[in-house]
């Protein structure tokens, strides 16, 4: 038989493979920088911060063991902690859904073959690119001032605007709005997701007489649900870590109405130098974000559809 020879060589090479070392020794070298960072920048610091959260530590003297007192203080006697949690929750709830909805809306508009579509996509992406910078925070602070651009525009419609950033009822929403305005990267991910949906689904349903609205709810949303889920998780985590905008635009004020959690933690660590206390705050943040992510994953079973076979 003509194949015998090749069969033998295949067997031989399989044998050789089994005898040869299973692992690539070179991997250690390729992975070394990352492993150093993993231990030195992530795992080590996590252990250290866990330890520090049980101590009083001001950076100058050695940490003093304090047992559970930091956690006890935070959970029972720290009104700023409760305030910052409430503020962060409102921030996340008032920005994330709108950002996702808005990003999806624009992505649907831009998911067509029309002239200049590339330019539109690029233009709608710009705010997201620049939004995280100090420059934009400065601009935001100016346009939402009492005599700023926003009130000038409202005046045209006969609305007398408030001093948005000076008013504890509105200041946080001004910062939420900045997050919604930065919808670009979320939109690009949605666009990529929309392009994965086979056109035949729409054609088939159109033949069956489905309306555009039915197609949206029965095809687009279910097919896009993994992408929606990904965007949701990332936006929530990002929301809990938001710092720069609240720091530059309002610095937590007025009356702590924009005291986001990350901002409070920064103040504890780098203004009051209560490193132990701030570490405890950080661990509570981690636990909170962890629980929230886990909850989102659990609910995802009911609304996220993964196509069988793929992924």
């Amino acid at each position: 038989m003509a194949t015998t020879h090749t069969e033998i060589t295949i067997k031989k090479s399989k044998l050789r493979k089994r005898v040869a070392p299973k692992y690539d020794k070179a991997a250690a070298l390729f992975l070394l920088p990352w492993l150093i960072g993993l231990v030195g920048l992530t795992i080590g610091p996590m252990i250290a911060s866990f330890y520090l959260s049980f101590t009083h530590f001001n950076l100058l003297q050695d940490p003093k063991w304090a047992g559970l007192s930091n956690y006890k203080q935070i959970l029972t006697a720290d009104e700023y902690f409760t305030t910052s949690l409430r503020v962060t929750a409102i921030y996340v709830v008032s920005s994330v859904p709108f950002r996702l909805a808005f990003a999806l809306f624009v992505a649907l508009l831009l998911n067509r073959k029309i002239k200049g579509i590339g330019i539109y996509r690029a233009a709608y992406y710009i705010p997201s690119l620049m939004g995280g910078s100090i420059a934009i925070s400065i601009m935001w602070r100016n346009i939402f001032g009492e005599t700023g651009l926003v009130n000038k525009a409202l005046h045209v419609f006969g609305i007398h605007g408030s001093a948005w950033l000076g008013d504890p009822h509105y200041a946080l929403y001004v910062i939420s709005l900045l997050s919604v305005w930065q919808f670009g990267s979320t939109m690009v991910i949605f666009l990529a997701g929309l392009q994965q949906i086979p056109e035949s689904y729409y054609d088939a349903s159109a033949i069956d007489g489905a309306s555009k609205l039915q197609q949206f709810f029965k095809i687009t949303i279910p097919m896009l649900s993994p992408v929606i889920f990904f965007n949701l998780i990332m936006a929530v985590i990002e929301g809990f870590m938001q710092f720069t905008q609240a720091f530059v635009i309002t610095n937590g004020g007025p009356i702590n109405s924009t005291l986001l959690f990350a901002l409070y933690l920064y103040q504890k660590a780098f203004t009051d130098f209560q490193m132990g206390y701030a570490s405890a705050l950080a661990w509570l943040l981690l636990i909170l974000v962890g629980i929230l992510t886990a909850l989102l994953f659990i609910t995802s079973k009911f609304w996220v559809h993964y196509e069988s076979g793929e992924e």
């Binding site: 993993l38 030195g40 920048l41 992530t42 080590g44 610091p45 996590m46 250290a48 911060s49 520090l52 950076l59 998780i233 985590i237 809990f240 870590m241 990350a262 933690l265 660590a269 490193m275 701030a278 570490s279 705050l281 950080a282 661990w283 943040l285 981690l286 974000v289 992510t293």
Partner: peptide, 20 residues
């Protein structure tokens, strides 16, 4: 672990990193 570190809030490692 690589995937988890992508989602880890930076605040958790911030203080020990600062100390280092």
């Amino acid at each position: 672990i690589l995937m988890v570190t992508m989602m880890l809030p930076a605040q958790v490692t911030l203080i020990p990193q600062y100390i280092i």
